[in-house]
Design a binder for these strands. Structure first.
Length: 280
DNA sequence: GCCCAGGTATAAA
DNA sequence: TTTATACATGGG
């Protein structure tokens, strides 16, 4: 587990090999954090801009210059600091040699508890695209439709996007995905789709609930459930993960990892993208 | 220019 | 029910 020390000027976290900010925010689970160089990243979550300074030499210690209250209310949950990732990694590693290798490659990955609405939009935009472009679309979406604060743009609200037509979203340059965003905004805004309710539903029911949105299939539904609602049993399968499954787990669907499926999937996804030759 | 991208809706077989 | 194709756009 990580060790948390509260100081007057912020919060210090000793990670004990369980957290690396860069591995976590640039492994393809979120698209809005930025690398400032010199072991510094920054992001905006729930309207709060945060810079994180870290030092890998001391088994990764990191510093957040925020109040103790904000850390406890927001960042502790967002980074899932209450969960023992060493234990998860041990279970995953025991399960298969290749999963062990993937977990060892980036052991500092954690599954973020993102805002459900942002996660839904992010993965709607992700379809048939690539990570740099997804980041671009999301940045433009926030610049044009999110509230501007001193430190950056807040993610657009459901209500704001529910007022938009696909034509209004042209500045995002999302192509055919624009009308999918509109569908999502309208169904969530009207209450036909209830993201918080999906947190408690049985998994197949939760999937079907999200798939009422035009443009949300099984992949986007699973990503929303995993990254937005922290349903850790979800194992989203896309073109990359299909290659991984065919190459390393033929005939399986990811179910072998049980409650650790979401974390295992992220280790495998990141490792396979960093070592594409290993899929040949 | 060319290929492909953390898929899905839609049409056709 | 399963399989093929279009989709808008831009990164590499």
């Amino acid at each position: 587990m990580v060790e948390i020390t509260k100081r007057e000027d912020g919060v210090l976290v000793r990670c004990n090999g369980e957290f690396d900010p860069a591995q976590t925010v640039f492994c393809g689970q979120c698209f809005r954090w930025e690398d400032l160089g010199n072991d510094t990243v920054c992001g905006v979550v729930q309207g709060h801009a945060q810079t994180i300074y870290y030092d890998r030499e001391e088994d990764t210690a990191l510093f957040l210059d925020c109040s103790t209250e904000l850390f406890e209310q927001l960042w502790h949950d967002y980074f899932d600091f209450g969960t023992d990732y060493s234990a998860i990694r041990a279970r995953i590693s025991k399960n298969s040699p290749i999963a062990e290798k993937a977990a060892a490659f980036a052991p500092g990955i954690r599954i973020l508890k993102q805002e459900p609405w942002e996660a839904l939009c992010s993965f709607i935009l992700s379809q048939n695209s690539n990570i740099p472009r997804i980041r671009g679309m999301l940045a433009r979406l926030c610049e044009h439709f999110g509230e501007k604060t001193a430190d950056g743009f807040v993610f657009p609200t459901v209500e704001r996007l529910a007022q938009c037509t696909p034509e209004d979203l042209a500045p995002v340059r999302a192509g055919f995905r624009a009308r999918y965003l509109c569908s999502a905004a309208q169904l969530v805004s009207s209450g036909v789709v209830d993201l918080e309710a999906a947190r408690m539903m049985e998994l197949s029911e939760a999937r079907a609930h999200l798939m009422q949105i035009c443009g949300v299939g099984k992949k986007v539904a699973d990503c929303t459930l995993l990254y937005g609602l922290h349903r850790m049993e979800c194992f989203p399968v896309d073109v990359w993960m299909k290659r991984v499954l065919e190459r390393w787990f033929p005939g399986e669907d990811g179910g072998r990892f049980g409650e650790d499926a979401g974390v295992a999937q992220q280790y495998l996804f990141h490792y396979s993208r960093s070592h594409p030759e290993s899929l040949a």
